[in-house]
Design a protein around this nucleic acid. Sequence first.
DNA 1: AAAATAATTTAGATAAGGCTAAAAATAAAT
DNA 2: ATTTATTTTTAGCCTTATCTAAATTATTTT
Lengths: 219, 219
Amino acid sequence: MMLSQTEENYLKAIYSLAYANSNNISTTLISEAVKTKASSVTDMIQKLADKDLVHYKKYQGVSLTKIGQKIAVEIVRKHRLWEVFLLNKLHYNWDEVHELAEQLEHIKSDTLTDKLEAFLEFPTHDPHGDPIPDKEGNIEHHNNTMLSSVETGKSCVVIGLKDSSDPFLKFLDKLQIQLGNTLKVISKEPFDNSMLVETATTSISISNQISKNIFIKKL
Amino acid sequence: MMLSQTEENYLKAIYSLAYANSNNISTTLISEAVKTKASSVTDMIQKLADKDLVHYKKYQGVSLTKIGQKIAVEIVRKHRLWEVFLLNKLHYNWDEVHELAEQLEHIKSDTLTDKLEAFLEFPTHDPHGDPIPDKEGNIEHHNNTMLSSVETGKSCVVIGLKDSSDPFLKFLDKLQIQLGNTLKVISKEPFDNSMLVETATTSISISNQISKNIFIKKL
DNA sequence: AAAATAATTTAGATAAGGCTAAAAATAAAT
DNA sequence: ATTTATTTTTAGCCTTATCTAAATTATTTT
Ligand SMILES: [Mn+2]
Ligand SMILES: [Mn+2]
Ligand SMILES: [Mn+2]
Ligand SMILES: [Mn+2]
């Protein structure tokens, strides 16, 4: 099945939204994700339904079919592998790779993705900590433990981000927080749920908004 | 200036045709190069003329403007750098890289090309021996000495190909001729201008059609 | 120089993806 | 249970890149 870049972007958007929202995905949510108008989304999901890539009943929102899901995961796989390439090989920063990967994920080839994966030595996660699906489409999600849930006095390792937007990434750069860093919770402020956190080099105060967006593994 | 992939392909086609034909390029030639109908070409070259990328007078064919030429060379640069990446890093064969580079050359970024070039350690030629333009668009063409012009008894090194089509590349694979190989002309057949050539491992007969398509450096 | 042929341009259509504005359906609030 | 507000769909139009068929210009051939 030969899909346009636009169709691929819709599938990927629906996939991400379904992961975050579980039930049927609304036209409006998709329109925000692909930055277009709701009326255009209706057109496109009807087209995708004709191609059996989404389940769709008028006014009821959409969900991916088996084949739609498979294609979406392939695009996610390509996106994340290209991000690894851009960071590890071309030395981009983690806040620069997403935009370029948005283009590179649409390169069509039967062999490119697997060759790229081998060249990168089979990375398991992208620069933002998101898991990279394997060749068969299997994907190991992390188990949603956030920094906000760590008890006072306990330590943890940063393994991922819920929000990987450029501003958030730049903000973490400023705090000198990177994937793999060990953080220790010194104290928690009941008033606003902020926490004092010890990094390798210093101590910083982190708002609840931030700590709810950082995936960690407890130590 | 933000150009579509289609517009970029037209500019690149006109650039290549101009290098091979020198004078103004006809609508028909372009239509063959971009695999479309002549009427579509007329539409597009009018659009490119409006954007000052080509010089165009009705019925007189087109030539690239300074800015059109600059853009075309940038795309050629990207194409050839990606081909080097695909061959050197992902271990594709030289007959497989072109199709993928046709897609990759359209990735838009201010920084990607230069970073890719640095990562590849500033290659000067692509896998088919074609010169890679530098950052400023300077390009060193080879001096059009063909294998067919080598005298009997003399040796030469293969440095490039006039025709880099997949069938020709596969044929050279069969003959075990690669870039960098030294060839010695054993004898020439006046009747059909074929030649007997000694390679590192064996002797082969090469037709004039082939020897006219192989750039060499005399030793 | 006129006629025939070939190349090029124009005119009119189509398909993809998008938009605005209006209509229809669903959800929320009285 | 109505009314109101929100969401979704439809209808009609636009742009880009393509096509076919017809008209026009250029090039050959006689
Ligand atoms: Mn990304
Ligand atoms: Mn990512
Ligand atoms: Mn090529
Ligand atoms: Mn090449």
